[in-house]
């Protein structure tokens, strides 16, 4: 932009400022609202206060700590399962030639296009039949439909771009495919696993429809459902201060994670979409 004229430079700066403000302001305003005393909430101001009544109230008025635990537990188990199943499947799909591989990849990709609601009644029946209704196990099972397809897809994309010579020496030395996966691929897949794992974590952390439908009691709810169902004395008196405090609590760790891993996330997203 060194050769730009002054008006273009100014216009560009205004554009960038508009983009940044539009992106960040709603979250900033949530912080502002959450740190106001409940009595001041209804006056619109733009500077944060230092009142943490709302934060205390969130934990006092519902089992919010338990909800956070539920979300973390479900998301972590879902990530571990997806990566475990995804790595071996990606090895088979990315490094071995067999008939039907293209069809299988296409099937996996098409599952990620499924509308969640299309499996809702079948999943409800399955969860009832397995006796895991209103339990974290049920949510873990249901969440796999969201995370498994793109984990397999992204890891396969990654695997097939590695040079062919990589595992050949190991095979010559008599290694079995399982040893090749463990000793040759796993050590160099750290970055790919971190990226896919993080994207799977975010997907499971944000999941709403299954968590809303397959849980019943406050204690089993995950964070998104808990926040969506925060209610006040009546339908018309939603405790907005509490809702904003809860929103900030669950969003800050996510934003920190995303900012730390931003380069990896961008490459993971593009591997999942553009290279498809």
């Amino acid at each position: 932009m060194s050769h730009w004229s002054l008006p273009s430079k100014l216009g560009f700066v205004v554009l960038l400022a508009a983009i940044a403000i539009f992106a960040v302001f709603p979250f900033y305003y949530a912080i502002v609202s959450s740190t106001k005393a409940p009595s001041e909430l209804f006056d619109v101001t733009y500077l944060p206060g230092f009142d943490f009544t709302n934060y205390a109230a969130v934990f006092r008025e519902q089992p919010f700590a338990r909800n956070i635990f539920n979300s973390v537990f479900v998301a972590v188990v879902v990530v571990v399962l997806s990566l475990g199943l995804g790595v071996t499947a990606a090895f088979a799909l990315g490094r071995v030639h067999f008939r039907g591989r293209g069809a299988l990849l296409l099937t996996v990709l098409s599952v990620s296009m499924f509308p969640q609601v299309a499996v809702l009644s079948g999943m409800f029946e399955l969860i009832r039949a397995l006796g895991v209704y209103n339990s974290l196990t049920g949510l873990i099972l249901a969440n796999l439909i969201l995370t498994l397809p793109f984990t397999v897809w992204v890891l396969t994309t990654f695997m097939r771009e590695l040079p062919k010579e990589l595992e050949e020496a190991a095979y010559v030395d008599g290694a079995t495919p399982l040893i090749v996966v463990r000793k040759v691929f796993l050590p160099i897949m750290g970055p790919a696993l971190a990226t896919t794992g993080l994207l799977a974590f975010i997907a499971a952390w944000n999941e709403f429809l299954f968590a809303l439908t397959f849980t019943l009691s406050n204690e089993m709810r995950t964070v998104p459902v808990a926040i969506a169902l925060i209610t006040g004395a009546s339908q018309y008196e939603l405790p907005w201060g509490n809702i904003m405090a809860a929103s900030v609590i669950v969003t800050v760790p996510l934003i920190v994670l995303v900012l730390i891993f931003q380069r990896k996330i961008v490459s993971g997203l593009t591997a999942g979409a553009v290279k498809g």
């Binding site: 979250f27 949530a30 944000n206 998104p224 929103s247 969003t251 934003i255 995303v258």
Partner: peptide
Amino acid sequence: IPWAIPTIV
């Protein structure tokens, strides 16, 4: 940031 924030939030 908007991308990272859960839809419900």
